[in-house]
Design a protein around this nucleic acid. Structure first.
Length: 812
RNA sequence: GCGAGGAUGGCGGAAUUGGCAGACGCGCUGGAUUUAGGAUCCAGUUCCGUUUAGGAAUGGGGGUUCAAAUCCCCCUCCUCGCACCA
């Protein structure tokens, strides 16, 4: 007798839909917001994507069974490069291609029986969604958090657009792997840096986030405490502010470096004989990629100017050097060769003086014999009034000195940069900004949203300019303020903007007056369990959606300032050791697999093969195991359905006690494992119980109850199959409507306890004891034991160590 | 270079306030049943040792302990993140 999955799975999916089993409660008493990251619709989804949805589904179903009113929605991150590149490749308009992909992917998800409330599905490329993405832009603009500036940006020659920092990997584009160059462009930015401190601080309250992700975010934010110091230029009327974390080395400054892109350089070299060489150097430097600049030997060029060291009046030369980053601090660095590795190299190359101002605690440094900079703490020397101070105290003392003299003082810098959101691409939400000849930058009034993305466009393939710029009917409008001729912004927004707030739209997906009502937000927020992705999102989406949450909180639209209390990161599914992807040709199609083996088998393969957080290889062996599991259960249930017992047995006979204990232990184990995402060991426990049920006498109330309990426990993992078994044993409706099974605490301990007897830590024997166990009984039985006696011959017992109920170790 | 995580049978993986290493599955071996087996059932399966007795074993080396996969020190390799951040 073999289980036929195809009809059964369809039947239950229809049933769930008809009975609205997964429709979210309107008035939740005990809310639980369970969310999986939404997806890019690039082609049909494949098994590689499905781990996310299956793991999330098992958890959501478990929570439903525990009596929570679960919100479990899904949607599509439908704008952006992945969808657009795929459309261009196929030569199909992105809208058609995207919507087609969504349709077939929805089918795949439904065929897996994922418990989504499909009524709340969102698609970020549709106007009723991106209207609110544009609204978010305006909100940030109003709050001074969106601004435009000319900046060097990452330009991908393949995708013909700018990229955010985290979209550049080793100087290559994250989508097409073309080399990324620097271009100076006028672009929109979100001022995420203004939230740097709060983003950092908020991590401490996220107890339910994996430490790993929080560490990555901390590093990415990159807070460093230090001191600003003002340096006057000797030859010109210019003052520079320079950031340093080591003000204690101020007396060791022997030069100054400035980033090639720095706007003050022109002033420094104007009218100077150094102008030509400096300009040539800058030209060369800005041509290089970041990688090239990093890999070569540090170099620079003298500007002809000097700065005056404010502590001792010394004049030191200013160099332009391409290892200095414009974006960090003020784009200038004070060169202290004795105590900074980079400055040391630079000084040796150009024969600049090396001045030791920090000595190690118990030795003295000689500049001539140094082979490396000394960067550790130590004692300040050659430092005027500060000499003799321990360097840590020196940092404070020097900082205070500058603060008092109004020449600088305490300063904090972050590695985090503002978020560049303009994209010169067609497939995105248009930026709701108008450029009026008279009024300048004008935000589109809210009541004119959405700014519709024109469907008709001659050429959406990017060629270095925004495709929308060529659509006259879109570009040319009247200024909303004064009515004179104006133009729209031809750029679209980074998709990360769409995904920064999507979790809010689910709460009120059809609201056309607000992105989400305050009431719904208050009802459902925060996300109780967020599941998805790997840590690759740690510096992208997971920071951005925290940022948006804080902005919306500040603006009073929501009452939480962190979006998700718990975050679970998953490991990828691999096939032949590599990430599944259609370009690598190693995908397992959902549709085909479900047709052949069934959704429940797919689900079981995913949960049993490895712990969810670890990478797993998709293997045929796993499929065989899962199929065998299902058939074995099916056989047992159909053969014994007449003896099913639906209530916990009132009395348990002596010889049924063992199996009853096993049942209770399994309920406890599976419940605990579900709560902590150890789904693989939950399945192992079910296997154990199944084997146990097979080997016990196949009748009697306890056996019958065991099968009943088993079906319950199986249902989050293999919901179609479990509901089918549920009806086979004569029950009505779906298990989803049933409360999660409790267990009897009095039956968790085994009747027989095995005590391990060790001699000098080596296992020599076991004794089995039923009933109460005291140390004395154990000792008595141990010394009577034949094997133990043999080992104890001619030996003297020195010590006995007894661990109650576990071990007796005899030391001889 | 810095930061995080990891290394356990033929394979995926269990086991963490230190207490029987290898749960469960796959594979393999033997048996039963079957016209048949890539179905099913039963038994076995870390390695060495013919069996027994025993010994060895959780990447390698040292240590703490009655007792270490688990704690400490050193080393090797792998994965991920950051990477001139002044």
């Amino acid at each position: 007798m073999i289980y036929i999955h195809s009809e059964v799975e369809k039947k239950w999916q229809n049933y769930w839909q008809k009975k609205k089993i997964f429709t979210t409660s309107k008035n939740p008493k005990n809310k639980f917001y369970s969310l999986e990251m939404f997806a890019y619709p690039s082609g049909d989804i494949h098994m590689g994507h499905c781990k996310n949805y299956v793991i999330g589904d098992v958890y959501a179903r478990f929570k439903m069974r525990q009596g929570y009113d679960v919100l479990h929605p899904f949607g599509w991150d439908a704008f952006g490069l992945p969808a657009e590149n795929q459309a261009i490749k196929a030569g199909i308009h992105p809208e058609k291609s995207t919507m087609d992909n969504i349709r077939i992917s929805d089918e795949s998800l439904k065929s897996l029986g994922i418990s989504y409330d499909w009524d709340r599905e969102i698609i970020s490329c549709l106007p009723d969604y991106y209207k609110w993405t544009q609204w978010m832009f305006l909100l940030l603009y109003k709050r001074g958090l969106a601004y435009k500036k000319e900046a060097y940006v990452n330009w991908c020659s393949g995708c013909q657009t700018v990229l955010a920092n985290e979209q550049v990997i080793d100087d290559k584009c994250y989508r097409c792997e073309a080399t990324v160059e620097k271009r100076k462009l006028n672009q929109w930015f979100f001022k995420i840096t203004e939230y740097a401190e709060r983003l950092l601080d908020g991590l401490n309250q996220l107890k339910g986030w994996q430490e790993n992700v929080k560490i990555i975010q901390r590093n990415w934010i990159g807070k460093s405490d230090g001191c600003d110091i003002l340096f006057k230029v000797a030859e010109k009327d210019i003052t520079f502010k320079v950031f340093t974390t080591r003000p204690d080395t101020i007396y060791g400054v022997t030069f100054m470096s400035i980033a090639p892109e720095h706007s003050a350089i022109e002033d420094l070299i104007s009218g100077s004989s150094h102008g030509a060489t400096v300009r040539a150097y800058i030209k060369e430097a800005t041509k290089k990629t970041e990688m090239e600049r990093m890999e070569k030997e540090k170099d620079g060029i003298f500007t002809g100017c000097h700065v005056i060291n404010p502590v001792n009046g010394e004049q030191v030369p200013i160099f332009v050097a391409d290892y200095v980053l414009l974006e960090y601090g003020s784009g200038m660095v004070m060169g202290v060769p004795a105590h900074d590795a980079r400055d040391f190299q630079f000084a040796r190359k150009y024969d600049l003086p090396i001045k030791v101002v920090i000595n190690p605690p118990d030795s003295k440094l000689e500049p001539s014999s140094m082979t490396d900079a000394y960067e550790e703490p130590g004692v300040m020397v050659n430092s005027g009034q500060f000499s003799g101070l321990e360097s840590k105290k020196g940092i404070t003392a020097v900082t205070n000195y500058f603060a008092e003299k109004k020449l600088g003082g305490t300063s904090v810098n972050y590695r985090l940069k503002d978020w560049l959101i303009s994209r010169q691409r067609y497939w995105g939400a248009p930026i709701p900004i108008v450029y009026c000849d008279k009024c300048g930058i004008v935000p589109v009034p809210e009541n004119e949203l959405p700014v519709l993305l024109p469907r008709k466009i001659d050429n959406y393939v990017p060629k270095g300019k925004s495709p929308l710029g060529g659509v006259a009917s879109f570009m040319n409008i009247k200024c909303p303020t004064c009515g004179s001729t104006a133009k729209r912004d031809p750029d679209t927004m980074d998709t990360f903007v769409c995904s920064s707030w999507y979790f809010l739209r689910y709460l009120d997906s059809k609201n056309d007056r607000e992105f989400c009502s305050k009431q719904n937000a208050d009802t459902w927020l925060p996300i109780d369990q967020y599941i998805g992705g790997t840590s690759e999102h740690a510096t992208g989406h997971l920071i951005y959606f925290r940022f948006f949450t804080k902005v919306l909180y500040d603006a009073g639209y929501i009452s939480v300032d962190e979006p998700a209390t718990n975050l679970f990161n998953l490991g990828m599914i691999l096939k032949n050791g590599k990430k599944m992807s259609s370009s690598k040709g190693n995908v397992v199609s959902v549709g085909k697999f479900v047709q052949e083996h069934g959704a429940d088998v797919a689900r079981l393969v995913i949960v049993f093969a490895a712990p969810p957080e670890r990478e797993m290889e998709w293997s045929n062996e796993g499929v065989i195991g899962a199929e065998r599991f299902i058939n074995r259960i099916y056989r047992l249930v159909t053969e014994s359905k007449s003896s099913i017992v639906k209530n916990k047995p009132l009395s348990i006979s002596k010889d049924e006690e063992t199996i009853f204990i096993k049942i209770n232990q399994t309920i406890a184990k599976v419940t605990g494992d579900l709560e902590s995402f150890k789904f693989n060991t939950a399945i192992a426990a079910l296997w154990e119980l199944l084997n146990e049920l097979y080997s016990c006498k196949k009748n009697g109330t306890v056996f019958g109850y065991g099968i009943y309990a088993f079906i319950h426990l199986l249902s989050p993992f293999a919901p179609h199959f479990a509901d089918e078994l549920w009806s086979i044993i004569g029950e009505k409706d779906s298990l989803e409507k049933q409360d999660w099974l409790g267990y009897d605490k009095n039956y968790l301990k085994n009747i027989i306890t095995t005590i391990v007897i060790q001699i000098n830590g080596k296992v020599r024997s076991h004794i089995e004891i039923e009933g109460s166990i005291t140390e004395n009984i154990v000792k008595e039985l141990a010394f009577k034991d034949e094997k133990i006696q043999r080992h104890l011959q001619d030996k003297k017992v020195k010590k006995l160590i007894y661990v109650p109920g576990k071990i007796l170790n005899i030391v001889v």
